[in-house]
Amino acid sequence: MLVLAIDAAREPAISILFRGNNFVRLLGGLWVTIRISMISAVLSIPLGILFGIFMMRKNPAAKAVSRVYLDFIRIMPQLVLLFIVYFGTTRAFGINLSGELSAIIVFVLWGTAEMGDLVRGALSSIPKHQYESAAALGMTPMEINIYVIIPQTLRRLIPLAINLITRMIKTTSLIVLIGVVEVLKTGQQIIDANRFAFPTAALPIYGVIFFLYFFTCWPISLLAKYLEKRWKN
């Protein structure tokens, strides 16, 4: 047994990835991360659009409420929000939320605020004369929105919304700190299980996780950059 362990230690640490199903396990962990960010993104994009339109209202009460919500969510680190929902709700309401559900709640609250602000920014970047010219051409308010305002807003909005998705994927890495078993936790488990056979496993494992995140987010960033350039003006 001892001889075996020593033999294994001579193997390069990177080969730990090809032992058993270690690499597949890491990918499974990554999938947990991606699934949570996708669910949150799918929920927060429509909610964010509604919130953005709500923020454009002139009603002072609506403005104040949305301002406080947006500023609070933006100024608090996402990890603090995760702690509030994960640890706080248990105490305050006696309900026991799983880490994954808390994460989705927090990312939807955060994503809605960020998306809402992007929508508001895109809507208010449309010059007033676009509305006026369209109205002067005899378009009804409905037509103005459908043919003039929404297409222009979308061109500004879509690249930014795609970027928000990469931010969401990156932020989802925090859920390991509230005990969700995702890619970092899976990596830790693999390292701990092979402590004796591969004492230096932490380097390749965390290196691989680094590049897993990179190759998930980079194509999405490139797409956002490409669309932004293509739709400029």
Binding site: K170, S173, L184, G187, I191, A202, F210
Partner: peptide
Amino acid sequence: SRNTPLLVQLFFLYFGLPKI
């Protein structure tokens, strides 16, 4: 640096690099 989370970067620096 922009396409990876800080936590993963820190794990690599703090737990990975000491191994070499």
